[in-house]
Amino acid sequence: MNQVIYDTFFASGPVWILLLAPFFLALGYAVTALTRSEPKQPIEKQRLEQEIEPLRDFDFRKVAPIKYQPYKTQGHVTMGIQKRTRSEWIRMDRGYLNRINERLPLIRDKPEFTIGAGEKVNPAIEELYEEIMIKYLPARFPTMFKARGKTVKNLATGSTYPLTTVGLTHAQMLAYMGENVEEDFYFMCPDQDGLYRLQGYIACFPGGFLSPARVGESVKEIHKPVPGYERKLGLSVDRYFGRMIPGDFIGRMNWSLQVDGADLFRTDGNNYYPGTEQVVEEYKEDPSLDECFLRVEHQTLTKLPRTSAVIFTVRSYMTPLHQVKAEGDGKALAAAIESMPEGLGYYKMRQYWGKKVLPWLMEDI
């Protein structure tokens, strides 16, 4: 599953689509190729049996963020879907404490946006809590997460959480996950007809507006406004979800520009939606370069063995454009932005901030 070309990147649609559509739309093209070439296989129920490689001498304070430059390797029209390993599911680096401190008040003060539980997703929430909080974190990061009796202590923050789901509400399980890892999780659960529907989430760093009203919608319903989705993909994504084997991990990176600050919790997104009542503020045309950032999402998809829920994991990174330029990548980023198809550039608001940002990125240091 290497790079996959796609040329339909929603020129219109509701703001919420920003969260899942880029990954699912790209995945659909991979699905089409895979289903043509692979023989049908029975769906096997199995545990996530990949070994978790322990990082025994790990010090998150000395770890730089991964080197992400998707604008160099995949642009916006090649999606770069690749296989991942279980050990790569959750990442830690020297920015961990700052971002956890950014997440805590969001979980406490904005639960209507950040926490989504419910009867249809609760079994999957419990299963993911077991996989991430009980099995994964102490095994992968033994210098950060220590099991002590019936609890696990996060040595970086000093907080503790239960080593069991007994006695916890499902909202509490989501909150504990949000308080200990930087990744957001979206739960796509199969219904009686085999359609996968968004049923829950822990989403502290959404790149767009996540409406509770979208919970319960299928992938097809979420993408209804996306031009070409039904014609090109149809039920391919749902079929692929049904065929996924627990233990497989696939991922990619998505990127955009954010020209009004570094905050990761965004309810308005960084995109333009024609035909809506969206108001574009004047600062988009003359942004402060100090407030301009490259926003990159590391996205992973996997399937849980017990509930068959598909988990969409998103880890977000922010880099000042000043840093991108100082590292010699300004012209490469500008070239990637300028190479966007017209519809995509319009969607990404290039027509607003591009007049100022692109010439500046092209300047010699």
Rank of each mutant, 00 (worst) to 15 (best):
F205P: 10
Q192N: 14
F205C: 11
Q199M: 12
G207T: 05
F209M: 14
G208H: 05
Y176W: 01
S218E: 00
Q192G: 13
G207F: 01
Y186E: 10
Q199F: 08
G167R: 02
Q192C: 14
P206F: 02
S211C: 12
C189H: 08
D191Q: 02
N180I: 04
L198Y: 05
L195H: 02
L210V: 13
K220R: 06
E221L: 00
S218I: 00
I202G: 08
M173F: 08
H170Q: 12
L168Q: 13
G208R: 07
H170C: 11
F209L: 14
P190K: 01
F187D: 08
L195I: 03
R214W: 13
L210H: 12
N180A: 07
E179C: 13
P190G: 04
M188H: 06
I202P: 12
H170W: 09
F185T: 01
Q172L: 10
P190H: 02
A203R: 11
P206E: 04
L195C: 01
T169G: 15
P190V: 00
M188W: 06
N180C: 06
Y186K: 13
G178E: 01
Y186V: 15
C189N: 14
F185S: 12
Q192H: 12
E183S: 04
Y176T: 09
L198H: 06
M173W: 04
L210I: 14
Q172C: 12
E179I: 07
G216F: 01
N180V: 05
G194R: 09
Q199Y: 10
D191E: 03
M188G: 03
R197Y: 03
E217S: 06
G208E: 05
D191Y: 00
P206S: 03
R197E: 05
D191V: 01
D193G: 08
